[in-house]
Amino acid sequence: MNAADVVRTEGSHVTTLGGRQVHLEVAPGLGEDLGTPIMLVPGCAVPSYAFRPVRTAMPGRWFVAIDRPGMVETPWPGRLPTLAEEVATLLELCEALGQPPVVVAHSMAGPHVEALVRQHPGSVSGLVLLDASIELDAKPAPAALDRAWLAASRLALEGSRLPPFALAASLSTRVAVWSQSHRLPIDYDRPPGTDDLFRRPDTLASVVAEQAAYADQLADLQTLLETTTWPGTPSVVLTAGSRAAWVRKQRVLAHRVGGRQVVVERSRHLMMLDRPDVVAEAVLGLLPEDERGTTPA
């Protein structure tokens, strides 16, 4: 299937977007009129299925969630991802949808989507940023550090083939989710397949590579901020309210994208798990008025 067919076909798919293999999880809604697509873009080390509580809170909508290369069923490309690559992949997904989606971007995906909107005005109809990454004075990493991180990614790829390494990595993700969620205890029930996912060599290598790419991607976005203006895309910035300094930093982001900031109580970083109701409310507010109150028929 081509990408335009994939994004309208329910289920789990691997396709090529922006020259890279990605995984999509699609819920095409009800009936022939799918309504406005809602594109879900998770942060680093967060799989697409983390957004399922948001989908449950908005039944009958057309959702397309993306996993970047290396996560779920795709291979790690063997390099540190660039902001330009992320933008190219997201742009091709928007084009496959056939109409500008409302995009929900979490954490590190926030800069990716902000760059997309700045470089391609009109590609997105609305934007919800979930505790999105922001640096007020971003600078690229030294080349030597990038090389070291790439070596670390390759080490993760090879090392995770050893059972003790893979087990330790899987346990560390459980601790990370527990520490970043207000709702989930450390012994929470994982969705089927999660343990296997975070023992995959390609998953672990991609997580290290994405973390390593953070400084360069934010520096590239900083350059865009100096050469572009926000095109007026309606935006909502949802901020976990656990730290006052972070709330202030996110206020700068909201101003930058001309958006409304909402401080979300009883939520940590994994807001799609802690407060899917607030995320759904923000998305509904960005949909056309005739789509807000009812499930598409």
Rank of each mutant, 00 (worst) to 15 (best):
A4E: 14
A4R: 15
R8S: 10
T9R: 11
V14Q: 10
L17A: 12
V22R: 04
V26T: 10
A27L: 12
P28E: 08
D33V: 12
V41N: 08
S48D: 05
P53Q: 06
V54C: 00
A57G: 09
P59H: 06
G60T: 09
R61P: 07
V64E: 04
A65R: 08
P69F: 03
V72M: 14
V72W: 04
P77W: 08
R79N: 09
T82H: 03
A84D: 15
E86K: 13
E86Q: 14
A88G: 11
L90G: 04
A96H: 04
G98Q: 03
P100C: 02
V102E: 03
S107P: 05
A109P: 01
H112S: 14
H112I: 04
V113L: 10
S125N: 04
G126A: 03
L127T: 06
L130N: 07
D137I: 03
K139W: 02
A143W: 00
A143I: 00
L155H: 09
L157S: 07
E158D: 12
S160T: 15
R161N: 08
L162W: 13
P163W: 00
P164R: 09
F165I: 15
F165Q: 08
A166L: 03
L167C: 05
A169S: 15
S170A: 15
L171A: 15
V175F: 11
V177Y: 03
S179Q: 15
L184W: 08
R190M: 14
P191Q: 10
P192T: 11
T194H: 12
F198N: 11
F198C: 07
L204D: 02
V207F: 02
A209L: 02
Q211V: 11
A219W: 00
Q222F: 00
Q222Y: 00
T223E: 14
T229Q: 12
G232Y: 05
V236F: 03
V236M: 06
T239P: 00
A244G: 02
R248Y: 04
Q250A: 09
H255V: 08
R256N: 09
G258N: 07
G258I: 05
R260A: 12
Q261M: 13
V263E: 02
V264T: 06
R268C: 05
M271D: 03
D277S: 10
V278T: 15
A280K: 05
A280L: 07
A282Q: 07
L284M: 10
L284S: 12
L287D: 00
G293A: 11
T294A: 14
T294L: 10
T295N: 01
T295K: 00
P296Q: 02
A297D: 11
